[in-house]
């Protein structure tokens, strides 16, 4: 069963996976080329700044990979209103678990390619004193971030329209609360508070923060 589901999800996501795979290798190699390639041609400070700029791409790639794999896991079933899935002779939670696991398995592919790209980039660059490369740590963090993004979008995609409406309603409520405060000439702190909870440990998006730099001190 798992093999069949994995096959279908791979088939649905393969084009997007290919693009992500290319980016997974290109971003680390590109970041090293951007600071001069084999020998760093800019000052160390500028090199680190360039690395920081490129680091945004890792975060975007992780979020994108999670989003694409989650949507592609459910798109076909959603088109058929889940009739086929619900008529299969497996417990429903089992079916959802199979889909979830298949997407996770596919996520390993770009994660491995991030690692490969980072290893290649680390191998081709000669570092000045005080700097080090972190290919393994970068790939692991990427995998964790992509996993969180995938799980989040998977949960939203697998739920009912009512669930999505609830989530949107909560978000709208938070925004409305800040607007009310602003109209009352009070500091609008609700969004800031909520966002800080999400992005500080142990918030759900904390793994996306930090220095995503292949080359760092």
């Amino acid at each position: 069963m798992f093999r069949s589901i994995l096959y279908t999800q791979w088939k649905w996501a393969r084009v997007a996976l290919l693009v992500i795979a290319v980016a997974a290798v290109a971003v680390p190699v590109g970041s090293v080329r951007a600071i001069g390639g084999v020998v760093i041609s800019t000052s160390v400070g500028d090199a680190l700044n360039t690395m920081r700029v490129w680091s945004v791409l890792y975060v975007l790639l992780a979020a994108l990979a999670g989003l694409i794999l989650a949507i592609s896991a459910w798109a076909a079933d959603q088109r058929g209103h889940h009739v086929y899935a619900l008529s299969l002779p497996v417990p429903r939670w089992h079916y959802v678990l199979l889909r979830f696991a298949a997407g996770l398995a596919l996520l390993l592919v770009p994660a491995l390619l991030v690692w490969l790209g980072a290893l290649i980039a680390s191998a081709i660059v000669v570092l000045p004193a005080g700097l080090a490369t972190y290919p393994g740590a970068l790939a692991l963090r990427w995998l964790l971030a992509a996993f969180v993004a995938y799980a989040l979008f998977f949960a939203i995609s697998s739920g009912t329209a009512r669930t999505a409406g609830l989530v949107l309603g909560v978000i709208a409520g938070i925004v409305a609360a800040d607007l009310m405060l602003a109209l009352m000439d009070q500091p609008a702190v609700v969004i800031e508070f909520v966002v800080s909870k999400f992005f500080e440990w142990p918030g759900v998006f904390e793994v996306f923060t930090g220095r995503w730099m292949l080359i760092d001190v």
Binding site: T8, K11, W12, A76, R79, G80, H81, V83, Y84, S87
Partner: peptide, 9 residues
């Protein structure tokens, strides 16, 4: 079913 529910791709 009444309407096709298979995977078009």
């Amino acid at each position: 079913p009444e309407r096709p529910h298979l995977y078009p791709s």
